[in-house]
Simulated assay, not measured.
Amino acid sequence: MFSSTRRRSVIPGFGLTLGFSLLYLTFIFLIPVGSLLLYTSLMSWEEFWRAISHPQVVASYKLSFSAAFIGAAINLVFGALVAWVLVRYSFPGKRLVDGLIDLPFALPTAVAGIALVTLYASTGWVGQYFHAFGIRIAYTQVGVVLALTYIGLPFVVRTVQPVLEDLEAELEEASASLGASRLTTVRRVILPALLPALLTGFALAFARAIGEYGSVVFISGNLPYKTEITPLLIVAKAEQYDYNGAAAIGTVMLLAAFVMLLVINFLQWWSSRRFAH
């Protein structure tokens, strides 16, 4: 008699778990996205192009993408510095600081937007000092960048932090013992190891910022052609019963999200191949 060496799995079998996974994916992702694309496909090309190329819409594209890029670039630098401090140094309150990094994940975005307005309005706790020098933050494009920087910081920190924890400090000591300067050590030892994680964190922060709504809607002022972001314009068109315009603009943002998804997956694939060799 041949005894079976196959162990019974604690969780349900492949067929059942695959079925639940596909069902969940269908209701959460495929049906909403498919409905959007189907609604957009009912429009003629002229209607679609007219909806996505209106000057007000183009202005919102420019603000959304440029502000998201600037916010992600700021987080690329300062998020890496925060991750470095949290990994390489011990100081009082370190656990508290580490927990505060995840605050944008836990705090509702609308609450974050109200808090930012309270701080940076011309009469706010911080904004009043800038206003004394004629600098406005709230209700300007600077405020939009500030909000997108706030919600994107955790993506960079949490992406870089594990890589820094795995990076042996002995490599830096060996570089220093061989006569390399601190700048050379950063450029030749630390930065190459962190580059894939930095790029992935940047892409995640950028992708998150493109679709942000709650934290921006209060601090931006929502001025057409000036501080109006694309997600806000989609909501406004839906409230005006312009479903064709909302669907067309939403399709453009969906395509942008897919592009960012491909970029993130490529960076992860490149990172795995780079460190595999």
Rank of each mutant, 00 (worst) to 15 (best):
V157C: 04
T5I: 14
H54C: 00
V235I: 13
S53Y: 05
A110N: 08
E172S: 07
R182F: 02
P108I: 07
I229D: 01
V156F: 00
S9Y: 10
S21G: 12
V263E: 02
L153C: 11
L195T: 15
A207G: 12
T26G: 02
Y39M: 13
L116N: 04
L233R: 15
F130N: 11
A132G: 06
L42S: 15
S9K: 15
L37E: 08
L146T: 14
T123P: 02
T5D: 13
M43N: 06
I28C: 07
A276L: 09
Y89I: 08
G214A: 03
S181M: 05
S90L: 13
L199R: 05
L232F: 09
S44T: 14
G93Y: 02
S44E: 09
V82T: 10
F91W: 03
G179I: 04
L116P: 02
L223R: 13
Y89C: 13
I31M: 03
A176D: 10
R6W: 07
A51D: 02
N265T: 11
Y129P: 08
T251A: 10
T26Q: 05
V142E: 07
M1H: 11
I114T: 11
I31S: 01
A176S: 15
Y39R: 14
I210A: 05
T227C: 04
S9E: 14
S272F: 05
D102K: 08
F105R: 11
V33T: 15
V156L: 06
V85M: 12
E173L: 06
V97Y: 04
P224Y: 00
E173I: 11
P224G: 09
